[in-house]
């Protein structure tokens, strides 16, 4: 053959290379690729897990922020209700107090007028008694003294009315 080409040697080289290729594949290429694939899968899983955790954290954060917002709204609502109730209660108490005061005043007025009437009634009787006594005194003699005592009694009654 030209150029010293020898089929036997070509086949020998092929045989040699095939053995080498098989050995390199099974001992080096495949295990290293397997290891790299395993590592890639591990890091992918880690990344996925981190991503999931991040998503969960984000969800929790948004949930808690929503809860906080709801709680703030609830607090505001409760505060407004409480203020409203307090205002109502105050108004009610004020009205009650005013009504009570009015009732008390009415009662006081009624009592005062009854007392006045009673006093006036009592004074009329006294006057009648005094008139009777004065008439008796006049009848009996001393007109001046009787008249004096009459005036004193009338002044006394007037002072008492003014004091009330």
């Amino acid at each position: 053959m030209p150029l010293n080409i020898d089929w036997q040697q070509i086949l020998l080289h092929l045989f040699n290379f095939c053995i080498l290729a098989l050995v390199l594949y099974f001992l080096l290429y495949k295990p290293v690729k397997k290891f790299m694939a395993k590592r890639t899968a591990y890091y992918d899983e880690q990344a996925k897990s981190a991503e999931n955790k991040l998503k969960e954290a984000e969800a929790l954060k948004s949930e808690y922020s929503a809860r906080l917002t709801a709680a703030d709204e609830e607090i505001d609502k409760r505060r407004a209700e409480a203020l409203h109730e307090t205002a109502e209660y105050r108004e009610k108490r004020l009205n009650e107090a005013e009504a009570e005061a009015e009732a008390l005043i009415e009662k006081a007025k009624r009592d005062a007028s009854r007392e006045r009437k009673k006093i006036i009634d009592g004074a009329g009787k006294e006057i009648a008694d005094m008139v009777g006594a004065a008439a008796e005194k006049i009848v009996l003699g001393s007109t001046d003294a009787a008249f004096e005592s009459f005036l004193n009694a009338a002044d006394k009654e007037k002072d008492e009315e003014n004091e009330e």
Partner: peptide, 27 residues
């Protein structure tokens, strides 16, 4: 055979021994 075939055998032998060592001790 040509000397190139002996070279091929030696190179293959070295590579195979290296591969075995890597597979057994390193990987």
């Amino acid at each position: 055979v040509n000397p190139g075939f002996i070279s091929a055998l030696i190179v293959s032998g070295v590579l195979i021994i290296f591969a075995i060592c890597v597979r057994v001790f390193a990987i």
